[in-house]
């Protein structure tokens, strides 16, 4: 009942749908950045949508399956091979004992999601196995030679059949293609609590220009480069609660969109908030990718 990590790639993490509701204790929600893709991967293998899977940044991961398994790969699109033969993404795949699964660098999107029937068995904090890169809580990033346990989570319809996903066909969400890195990603925004701390032109500048995703981005925040926004109020803002998707604007005028591992409080004004449904796309944005806000 195990998978051996032969090579973890640049960064592979255990993620589920996170631990919401603990911000008052200082804990970020964490969880998969592209939640829809993790849900889909889980449904394809007959898991509950919130089972723990792997979030694989930029490919490079090589796994060896000690036991037979059923897996599905979703999210980013690139060449993923099983024993050297390319597999179909967004589909349940049977894996024989001893098989090696290899993830190429994605051609579209940034993060693959791998679900294994039964879920990844990892330690839980407040009901979630998600790794939180800000606090360091949750399982450590995967290391070479590490063995991953496979859990026994089940949605009740798939136990032991290996074909449980067939029962889920009716409720599978539509497959959302990973974003093309050559095209702009569009995300809807609503007004944030401190929109009135910026001059009139700033909102227009926010929603009319193409921003570029900075390579400094991570699971904590998507940093944006573009023509800066202009804050008119100069007083210091006492730290206040920050929501997922908040566009926090430091004195540089260049916003950061807070993602799953964001700090629960912050001291820079929030001009706008990205709609929750559009955050999945930001989790697939590649450094240098253009981002447009619709507000």
């Amino acid at each position: 009942m195990a998978i051996v990590v032969v090579n973890p790639g640049p960064l592979t993490l255990v993620e589920d749908l996170g631990r919401q509701g603990w911000a008052s204790l200082g804990l970020s929600p964490s969880g998969a950045l592209d939640r829809q893709s993790l849900r889909l991967a889980n449904l394809l293998v007959g898991n509950p949508v919130g089972a723990a899977g792997l979030e694989i940044l930029l490919g490079g991961l090589r796994l060896r399956f000690v036991t037979a398994s059923t897996v599905a790969v979703t999210g980013a699109e690139g060449i993923v091979t099983l024993n050297g033969a390319e597999i179909t993404l967004n589909q349940a795949i049977r894996v024989a004992p001893g098989s090696v699964l290899d993830f190429g660098v994605p051609l579209f999107g940034l993060r693959y999601y791998l679900a294994v029937q039964g879920g990844i068995d990892a330690s839980k904090l407040l009901g979630s196995s998600s790794t939180d890169m800000l606090s360091g809580e949750g399982p450590a990033p995967l290391k070479s030679g590490e063995q991953l346990g496979i859990g026994r989570v089940s949605n009740g319809s798939s136990a032991g059949t290996g074909a449980g996903h067939l029962n889920n066909v009716a409720i599978l969400p539509a497959i959302r293609r990973a974003p093309d890195p050559g095209r702009a990603i569009t995300a809807r925004v609503d007004r944030g609590p401190r929109a009135d701390w910026f001059d009139h032109d700033s909102w227009r500048r926010l929603v009319s220009q193409d921003w570029t995703l900075s390579p400094d981005s991570n699971r904590i925040g998507a940093r944006l480069v573009g023509r800066p926004l202009n804050q008119t109020r100069r007083e210091e803002l006492p730290s206040e609660g920050m929501v997922l998707g908040a566009l926090q604007v430091p004195p540089s005028g260049l916003p950061t969109v807070f993602l799953a591992d964001h700090p629960v409080t912050g001291g820079y004004p929030v001009i706008a908030v990205v709609r929750r449904a559009d955050l999945d796309l930001l989790g697939q944005a590649r450094p240098g990718q253009r981002i447009r806000f619709l507000g």
């Binding site: 509701g21 603990w22 911000a23 008052s24 006492p238 730290s239 206040e240 609660g241 929501v243």
Partner: peptide
């Protein structure tokens, strides 16, 4: 815990220096 007296559907109640954030 916030869930004890908050209506269902409330996720977080986060106090800070001058504000309370409710998601």
């Amino acid at each position: 815990a916030a869930s004890l007296s908050a209506p269902s559907g409330i996720i977080d109640v986060v106090p800070a220096a001058r504000t309370v954030l409710v998601t």
